[in-house]
Design a protein around this nucleic acid. Structure first.
Lengths: 364, 364
DNA sequence: CTGAAAGCGCTTACAG
DNA sequence: CTGAAAGCGCTTACAG
């Protein structure tokens, strides 16, 4: 890293040095606009709010003044007076997981159409950081929050919040939590995936990843057991391995089920990044998913189809979930706290090569 | 998608319905705190600001009142009066590219230590959306902006902004742009990567991806040509393929250089997602990176080492760049617009299997 | 449609 | 350390 260099105020290639700062000039306000346009302050305010009360000619004069003076609307002042804001906070447990990024992009897109600005914060599964972030967002006047709670979040802590502010939980919810909820049909998705593995003849099917206490895991595990029972298979506890929901977690969980006296021949993973860890672990051992072990993920992130072999997964439409979470929250903000909703989204099995049901070249 | 269901106010499993909204209660302000703590408004303000002027006993009484009343500090009101904010805006061209997510995570981390809240917005390479986002962030009183400008951004448009607000450009800068700049040493990194390919005996080396007008591409292409010249190789224009800096772009560019009368045997890709597209395209053709074609990416995102084969790449430390961009911007905010800085970060070649220099199992 | 007045919740001098 | 006063930039009734 020896060549890192810092060149204060210098030129890099064609880059130009900043000019001296503009003279400390007073902020342009609606009073200035009013004066220049020859109207009252109130009229300017009406124009800014898009009121139909103002005649076209005056409206044009106001906009002219706005452009000429380089006026910037001060939303802080406006919301101080009106007690309304257009800020939406996103509190995400792990943005390094591409699935949550897809969720965030969906939320962001939904905000675009509503003139709402999304704040985003990554808690990194840290409940202390999560509490800080939520406090900061409240202090900044967020009109509502979309939360993917960190592992270990206490519902009671958040209920104190959700009783005062519209909150929507996305993907993850909490036992005894209050607020809107937008989640995929975890149980159904897991059941479908497991049933597929059973139909391929597997009898030692593992469930890999997720931590105890995570409702998402409980639900997916329930669907997993449903399908085992339907296929007349026993649920061996040794095949239900807890692990952090990330790549290293997947790798560790794989090692565990391969080391059993009766190793697993197939696995449903808690999510796609766990499955990617499993794929990676297989490659390290000279094994191949779809041939030596059937692997299915959950989420169907964009990366899934690019794995070698392409990863079979349960598609939950992350961006769509994000859009719906935003829509639910915006409705809740508009309608008041009592308007919480629950949305259960789809969970479709997308079969690719990693589960061994299709040739390696398919699903690409 | 038939099973998607919306259940307003209903129960999902253990989830509880929200209680009726709390009675519309007046907001708790510092006046309430002052009254309860038996001090003046000014004293509360001093305590909130962490001033050492207030005696410990009073400070404790104030904090007690804050907890008891559930007071939430109103940053909007504070910044309206003080004309200062702790909001930092991030304007990112493409958050779906994991590299920019790494950058954003670095920025976020740097903000944590400074009580600064980062806004994030994804422009999706859309200059119109970018302009909207920047306006909105200004209206919300952002103290400064970190911008990864969208392809096609006009420097003149942004200079009107950067003359009024501290701005740091991360990864991408603009011809004639003003503001701080934090970028890796693109030219050196590309030269190293290309020299490595030449040293392996390749004589038909392609440069794939990036769009005309992108400075990053110009710089990487310059390093590419440097290394070709040093190796005594001619720069064949047919081997310099423009393409969007994403996976489909990489795939399309690969098709082009494989279709030439004298196909390329090696390629340096504009960035890792382009390289991943190339890897994917090779797999589709039954070809293998590292054996049938040497492939090197740029950025070294976390995904790179998980490819099959693992991707050789030029590591630029995305999170580190993000942290430095934030540090530069925060200094600039503190010191005034004239304090713009330029930082050139490292660009180290990380050799893995995709360029054919090491066995496939290494670099995992 | 317009104008004058009040007030959102805070910080900032300023006099005690 | 404390208290009273002013003001940040806007919106909101309210009377014309």
């Amino acid at each position: 890293m020896g060549e890192a260099s810092v060149v204060a105020g210098a030129e890099i290639g064609t880059f130009q040095v900043a000019p001296p700062p503009a003279a400390e000039t007073r902020r342009v306000t609606i009073v200035d606009i009013a004066r220049r346009a020859g109207v009252s302050k109130s009229t300017v305010s009406l124009v800014l709010a898009g009121s139909p009360l103002v005649r076209e000619a005056k409206r044009a004069r106001v906009h002219e003044a706005i452009d000429a003076l380089g006026y910037v609307y001060h939303r802080g002042a406006a919301s101080l007076r009106s007690a309304r804001t257009s800020l939406l906070g996103m509190v995400i447990n792990d943005l390094a997981n591409p699935f949550f990024m897809e969720l965030a992009i969906g939320i962001e897109r939904a905000c675009q159409t509503s003139d709402v600005v999304p704040f985003i914060a990554n808690t990194g599964e840290n409940v202390v950081r999560q509490a800080q972030v939520i406090r900061l967002m409240r202090e900044h006047g967020a009109a509502g929050l979309i939360i993917c709670p960190a592992i270990g979040t206490d519902a009671a802590d958040l209920n104190a919040l959700t009783d005062r502010l519209p909150v929507a939980f996305a993907m993850r919810r909490l036992h005894g939590g209050r607020g809107s909820v937008v989640v995929p049909d975890n149980r159904l998705g897991a059941r479908r995936a497991t049933a597929h593995l059973a139909s391929l003849g597997h009898r030692r099917i593992a469930f890999l990843g997720g931590m105890p206490g995570m409702i998402v895991r409980e639900e997916r595990l329930a669907g997993f057991r449903d399908a085992l029972a339907e296929a007349g298979l026993a649920a061996d506890p040794a095949l239900q391995v807890e692990a952090l929901p990330n790549r290293p977690g997947g790798r560790a969980a794989l090692a565990q089920v391969l080391g059993l006296p009766h190793p697993a021949t197939a696995c449903l993973c808690f999510n796609d990044v766990v499955a990617i860890g499993v794929l990676h672990g297989l490659t390290e051992r000279g094994l191949m998913a779809g041939r030596d072990m059937a692997v299915i993920g959950f989420d169907d992130i964009a990366e899934a189809r690019q794995m070698v072999p392409p990863l079979t997964s349960v598609a939950v439409d992350g961006e769509g979930l994000g859009e719906r979470a935003a829509a639910v929250l915006l409705r809740q903000i508009a309608a008041g706290a009592a308007a919480s909703e629950s949305v259960i989204g789809p969970a479709e099995l997308v079969v690719r090569a990693s589960c061994g049901a299709t040739p390696t070249s398919e699903g690409v």
